[in-house]
Design a protein around this nucleic acid. Sequence first.
DNA 1: CTCATTCATAGCCATCCGGTTATACGTCAA
DNA 2: TTGACGTATAACCGGATGGCTATGAATGAG
Lengths: 107, 107
Amino acid sequence: MTATRDEIFKTLADPTRRAIFERLCREGEKTVSVLTTGAGVSQPVVSKHLASLKRAGLVRDRADGRQTHYSADYAALAPLIDWAHEMTGFWEKKFDALEDLLNRMDQ
Amino acid sequence: MTATRDEIFKTLADPTRRAIFERLCREGEKTVSVLTTGAGVSQPVVSKHLASLKRAGLVRDRADGRQTHYSADYAALAPLIDWAHEMTGFWEKKFDALEDLLNRMDQ
DNA sequence: CTCATTCATAGCCATCCGGTTATACGTCAA
DNA sequence: TTGACGTATAACCGGATGGCTATGAATGAG
């Protein structure tokens, strides 16, 4: 369930897979056949990528007769955003420390 | 120079490489030999990862005698953050659209 | 029932990639 | 100059992975 940061990064690293996820984000719920048109790869490949995305918690699937509807799970991006903000946060800390130092030197 | 989003994702996908970047973010500038201690891999591997990070614009290097100092370039994370926010943004738009629809049905 | 449709899985292959050791290159010390 | 040190590169290897085709499984249509 709780996808690791590593899984999320690895899953989004592939351009084809990221494009599928991006399309689900932009256009909402889509079936596999619809996603296959315009994906540039065969249907089995799309299914495999969707399975990866699901494993990483990035998409949900909903069975409906013989077709499966996939949709993006936006909340799954939170760990990625948090990590990035944490990393840039270290920079701000250093900047603050420098500022403090300069202020102290000023006095 | 301007690293593509794909390069950034691919570069950060590897755990070892991401750990090196993370350490540079947390602890600031470090030499290759220092980074090698605790990296869990050999020095050539660290050098190769640093070259990848540099290619993606995630780190800078500074030559100093026979050692090379590497440091994180925090600004390089911006495309990643922007992309993630854009993706979640589509969700908010849909939410707003739903809200609008409900409001209109209410009238 | 029969056949088409939709999707997932299996099996295969080529390529990529992260790891290794060996080595070359440049720099500082003696 | 000689040798030790720090780093980058070369050559190589095994495993992971993204693509394909073929096929199976389940459902809907006729």
